[in-house]
Computed example of a mutant assay.
Amino acid sequence: MDSSTLFFLIIALIAGGLSGAALNTWLQARKSKKYVSTQEASVLIERIEKVFKVVMAEGYFTEIYNYQNDKNIWNLINDKKKALIIAKAKVLVGYDFGKMKFHRPDGERKLVIDFFPAPEILSIDTDYKFYDIEQGWLNRFQSDDYTAILNEAKQTMNEKAMESDLPRIAGNQVQLMIFQLAASMNWSIEMKLPDGNVALLREFSHYRTLEAEIDSLDGRKE
């Protein structure tokens, strides 16, 4: 084999190797494109509002919610679906001072409150987990079912929070804050609330007896 033939063979081998490497890279890139996913997120701010809301109490709740739906098919088959939902929530109760009405008499270091809002739930942060989900042949869970279940569970959580001692604790806290703040500035507070407002606030001024019932496994109350 002469030198020119050997040189040509070396060039051919190098070119073939480079072509093979390029082909392999192209195939790998094409193959990887099949598994590339693009994620995009858009955050839209609808509006921004100035608020004067103050949290005075927070509570942690756990709710066990049993859901069952029976569907009678042609009066022959009772097709049912059910689920056990355990909901945990952090509830913040306080006051929206934007709803308070007051005035200051001329020349006096005094604040007269004409209307004081009732305590309310300012925020509720919930976490739901579904257990023991059972579905029938035709009566199956749809996305609307989950939405309705979560809305009902959240509504129940709101009601239980307002029936607890959180509003009363918030009421005591806000009175302490207002009168101590006024005293530190040598101001006085005078409450001139209408009867309806007094009656509304009185509902949140006493402890509520906690009543709890435990469902046994056979469905009876213990």
Rank of each mutant, 00 (worst) to 15 (best):
L44W: 05
R109W: 10
L84I: 14
Q68N: 09
N151T: 15
R47E: 05
E211W: 02
D132C: 02
G107F: 03
R208N: 04
A148F: 15
E49Y: 11
A22G: 14
E49L: 09
E63G: 05
K31S: 14
E190N: 07
I48R: 04
L122M: 12
V91K: 05
E222A: 13
R47W: 01
I133E: 03
I45N: 02
L76C: 02
K90Y: 03
T209Y: 05
D2F: 03
D132W: 05
K192F: 04
Q173W: 02
I10Q: 03
D215A: 14
V51W: 00
N158P: 08
F8L: 14
L111N: 07
V174R: 10
K101A: 08
A89S: 09
P119E: 02
V51N: 06
D195K: 12
T147C: 06
Y60A: 08
H206M: 06
D144M: 12
M191P: 03
K50P: 04
A212M: 11
R109H: 14
I169N: 05
I113R: 12
N158L: 14
L150G: 00
L23G: 06
K90S: 05
K192T: 11
L18Y: 12
S184F: 04
A21R: 01
K71D: 11
L210K: 12
N158E: 10
T147V: 14
E190R: 15
T126K: 15
V55G: 12
L13F: 11
L44H: 07
S3G: 06
Q28V: 14
S37L: 13
K160S: 13
S42W: 12
K31D: 14
Q142C: 05
L18K: 00
R220Q: 07
L13N: 02
A89F: 03
T25G: 12
D218H: 00
S19Q: 02
F61E: 07
L84E: 09
A148Q: 08
D218G: 13
K221I: 15
L23C: 07
L181G: 03
